[in-house]
């Protein structure tokens, strides 16, 4: 199996996992206490087309890569949920399984978004798409963000919240941020447009006084920056931030799907999760997926005894001792997937 086939396989597994019907009630989940993710269908929509998750991997060299990612499938066009799921799956497969260790994080983010755009376009021909926002950490490069569309990334400090992204709308790029025409809040670019996409890379200086990052879909941040900032500043726990913002969105009418990811910069996943090396962990508001990566592609290719189990209804599995004691090597074909359900 080639590396590109491996990436595609991982992408397909994540995509199918995310396409499982999300439960209708709001789902909020705390991961390792420092990260919380949540999503809610809202009061008017018949389908939740947002996808939000935390992806985590402890690499073979003991370095870490983790990313909070939010995709808002575009309603009004075709297959909003499918586009959001596919976008996020491609993004993760490219971001976490890259070819050269010397590729900078910002280049990987840029490439991953462009690949997501290319593939979503080839599947939906520009008639469907999604926004994509992510804050990613890599031990070597620190934090970096990427954004396409009108979902937002905020940097939270002790007593204030700053929007790091500019909405890709006419209103968003105007100085007064105002809509003068009916279409001024419609998107200028999205994942799946297929041409001329320009991912916004957000370089984050480690010297800034940032304590946490917040990503919101437009169904969440429409409540206004002031209300949003007050909730963030006055909530002690990550989970509280997410729960309160979802509740507020509901109180304000809940006219759209509302999704949020909140991550404290001091997140210590190694300590909290006790993760296995070379396992890709995907945490959604409702459940989690683990993709165990094969340390030695050649052997596994020959034996062919490690085909991925892609039955998404599989009950949670216990990892075997053999997998837990994998040698620390690069290369990453999938060999086993396990699912754990959470009551959110």
């Amino acid at each position: 199996m080639t590396e590109s086939q491996t990436k595609e396989q991982i992408q397909n597994i994540i995509n199918r996992y995310l396409l499982r019907n999300a439960p209708q009630p709001a789902g909020v989940r705390s991961i390792a206490e420092s990260v919380a993710i949540g999503t809610d269908i809202g009061g008017h929509r018949t389908e939740n087309q947002d996808r939000v998750l935390l992806a985590y991997r402890l690499n073979a060299d003991n370095s870490e890569t983790f990313s909070i990612i939010l995709c808002d499938g575009m309603g009004g066009m075709e297959s909003g949920a499918q586009c959001a799921s596919l976008s996020i799956a491609i993004f993760i497969a490219r971001l976490f399984f890259y070819d050269s260790v010397n590729t900078t994080l910002s280049s990987r983010l840029d490439f991953s978004v462009r690949e997501a755009d290319r593939i979503v376009f080839s599947n939906h021909f520009g008639k469907g798409g999604a926004t994509l926002s992510s804050v990613t950490f890599d031990t070597k490069y620190g934090f970096c963000g990427v954004n396409v569309g009108d979902s937002r990334i905020y940097a939270c400090e002790f007593d204030k919240v700053n929007q790091l992204t500019t909405d890709d709308t006419l209103a968003g790029i105007r100085k007064d941020k105002t809509s003068y025409f009916p279409d001024d809040k419609n998107l200028l670019q999205f994942i799946g447009m297929g041409k001329d996409i320009n991912p916004h890379i957000i370089e984050i200086n480690s010297n800034d006084n940032i304590s946490s990052f917040l990503i919101t879909s437009d169904g969440s941040h429409f409540v206004g920056d002031d209300a949003l900032a007050k909730i963030v500043v006055n909530s002690k726990k990550s989970e509280t931030v997410v729960r309160r913002l979802i509740e507020l969105s509901r109180m304000y009418g809940g006219s759209d799907n509302s999704s949020i990811a909140f991550m404290q910069i001091s997140s210590d996943f190694k300590q909290q999760l006790n993760p296995d090396r070379d396992v890709l962990y995907i945490f959604t508001p409702y459940s989690e997926l683990q993709i165990v990566c094969c340390p030695d592609r050649k052997i596994k290719d020959e034996n062919m005894d490690c085909k991925p189990n892609i039955d998404i209804n599989t009950q949670p599995k216990k990892k075997s001792r053999k997998q837990k004691n994998k040698p620390d090597k690069k290369l990453t074909p999938t060999i086993e997937i396990s699912f754990g359900d959470s009551n959110g």
């Binding site: 008017h44 520009g126 279409d183 001024d184 998107l187 200028l188």
Partner: peptide, 20 residues
């Protein structure tokens, strides 16, 4: 044109403005 147009989020559904 003096008044801003507020988007009804349920109406426009985050459609694009790419055609225009």
């Amino acid at each position: 044109l003096t008044e801003a147009v507020e988007r009804d989020i349920t109406v426009t559904n985050s459609r694009t403005v790419l055609g225009a």
